[in-house]
């Protein structure tokens, strides 16, 4: 993102916004959480990452819910309950969507999408699956 001292509202402009990749504006989940690092007393806290995933959402609803969702994720999830953390340096622009300098298809954001394609939709005709036939 351009270094112009431009001010941003982290809640209004980032949190709960759609994440998309740079190449094809491919949806990659939502900005479910933002990680901030507190450093020295003389240095302002630094924004270091955006987080996306069900455990983050569960933690927001209730701290008690988070371990349950993580456990479910480890048992059943394709991502093994791991939260997808995108370094803040990968954020390219903030507009209607948050554009990331990441390839969606190689990121954990689409792990479920790929799993479903390999294990479910390929067996159903008419799904337009690249693995079909």
């Amino acid at each position: 993102m351009a270094d112009g001292g431009d001010e941003m509202h982290l809640v209004r402009d980032v949190l709960d916004k759609q994440l998309v990749d740079h190449a094809g504006h491919d949806p990659m989940g939502m900005a479910d959480g933002i990680v901030i690092e507190v450093r020295d007393v003389n240095q302002p806290p630094r924004v270091i990452a955006i987080e996306s995933g069900f455990p983050v959402l569960a933690r927001r609803v209730s701290p008690k819910l988070e371990p349950i969702v993580r456990w479910l994720g480890r048992r059943l999830g394709v991502r093994r309950g791991i939260v997808y953390r995108i370094p803040w340096s990968r954020v390219r622009s903030l507009d209607v969507e948050v554009e990331l300098d990441v390839d969606a298809d190689r990121s954990p954001a689409k792990a479920w999408e790929h799993w479903l394609c390999r294990h479910v939709t390929r067996y159903i005709p008419g799904s337009g699956n690249f693995l079909e036939s």
Binding site: E7, H9, L10, I36
Partner: peptide, 29 residues
């Protein structure tokens, strides 16, 4: 720390008096 968990948190001042709830965090480059 997680910014989303800070939202709505009750803030007290140096003397323990209620100051407000965190609504927004502004950042700059």
């Amino acid at each position: 720390f997680h910014l989303e968990l800070l939202l709505g948190a009750k803030v007290i001042d140096r003397e323990g008096k209620f100051a407000g709830h965190i609504e927004e965090v502004r950042a700059e480059r």
